[in-house]
Computed example of a mutant assay.
Amino acid sequence: MRVDLFDFDLPQELIALRPVEPRDAARMLVVTPAGLADRAVRDLPACLRPGDCLVFNDTRVIPARLEGRRGEARIEATLHKREGLRSWIAFVRNARRLRVGDSIDFGAGVTALVEAKLDDGSVQLGFPGDEPVELLLERAGQMPLPPYIASKRPTDARDREDYQTMFARSDGAVAAPTAALHFTPRLMEAVAAAGIAHETLTLHVGAGTFLPVKAEDTADHRMHAEWGRIDAATADRLNAVRARGGRIIAVGTTSLRLLESAADAGRVIRPFEGDTDIFITPGHRFCGIDGLMTNFHLPKSTLMMLVSALMGRETMLAAYAHAIAQGYRFYSYGDSSLLLPEG
């Protein structure tokens, strides 16, 4: 399909630079075959049914953006995928100044060696020593805010908390599963009281989620792989939800992509551990989920294609036009939508 079919005009002032407080006070646009409804995130329990199950991504964002020098050259690296105990693949600004074997000084006693330069322009970095890489990043790294936020204001200490969900426990993401940023303990209590279950899985979100689609046709776009895991017990409980007539509602496109990677054609969710580079576009048959809670996405992005696959392109373009007209806040720190293809 042509990528420009997923384009729309977004006023820059609707890009949220900070989340609302409290988190569950964000607005939520409910999209069903019956039409659109303006709600708030705290209304979520009333928008679902007893027996449904929300599925969250428990990945934890690490401070994966590093600024340093190789000699006189300024180097900025954003780690996006672990390749080994001490090796990471990174998107590097000024990568042309690097050669295999070069050492980069990121300050605070943190250095990295260039282990390889890859065909897609990314760089494999190795961190020498015995100290866990996560501790090195805590010392020298910054939270990797999306470009549409980082280009408008500097990262600060507040982002260390704001850009982390209440479910975060498994280190490894370089982008937050932002749909879950709206959840609070108070909201989760209301969810449970309404008879709605919840489960967690892990998908370490990579910085590739922010890369623009440069191809003119979706068939020519290549997704970056991300590592995920659904254990056997979680898969069994999710299948039991469906067996009892409940729906599986993914909280975020990251949870959705992993569930779709793990589900078979019979709509059975299997245990999964490994990389996935699933690219969901219109025509995809959804087998792992029955609905999606997600923020508002970039024009011509893979995520705009994903929500169009779930609800229909015309429906989503109409929903986004409504959201823009009503002043919804967009992107990672913005408002939410609840997409229910069967109402």
Rank of each mutant, 00 (worst) to 15 (best):
V3L: 00
L5D: 09
D7V: 00
L10F: 09
P11R: 00
Q12D: 15
P33C: 06
P33R: 12
A37Q: 15
A40Y: 13
D43H: 15
L44M: 13
L48Q: 01
D52L: 06
L54V: 07
N57Y: 09
D58T: 05
R60L: 01
I62F: 01
R65N: 03
E76S: 10
K81H: 15
R82D: 01
E83Y: 14
E83K: 15
L85S: 13
W88N: 04
A95S: 14
R97A: 12
R99D: 12
I104Y: 14
D105S: 15
F106E: 07
G107H: 11
A108W: 11
A108N: 12
V110K: 02
A112G: 00
A116N: 08
G121D: 06
L137I: 02
G141N: 13
Y148L: 06
I149L: 02
P154C: 13
T155K: 02
D162I: 00
T165D: 09
A168F: 04
D171C: 06
T178Q: 12
T178A: 05
H182W: 07
P185F: 05
V191P: 07
A194W: 14
A194R: 07
G195K: 03
T202V: 07
L203H: 10
L203M: 10
G206K: 07
V213Y: 07
A215L: 09
D217M: 09
T218N: 07
D220T: 04
M223R: 15
A225P: 07
A233I: 01
T234W: 03
R242W: 04
A243I: 11
I249R: 03
A250D: 01
A250Y: 05
T253S: 00
T254F: 03
G266K: 13
V268S: 13
D277K: 15
I278M: 04
I280N: 06
G283A: 08
F286N: 04
I289R: 15
T294R: 01
F296T: 08
M304E: 14
M304L: 12
M305D: 13
M305G: 11
V307H: 10
L310E: 11
M311G: 12
H322T: 08
H322P: 03
R329Y: 09
R329K: 15
Y333Q: 08
L338D: 00
L340R: 05
P341F: 10
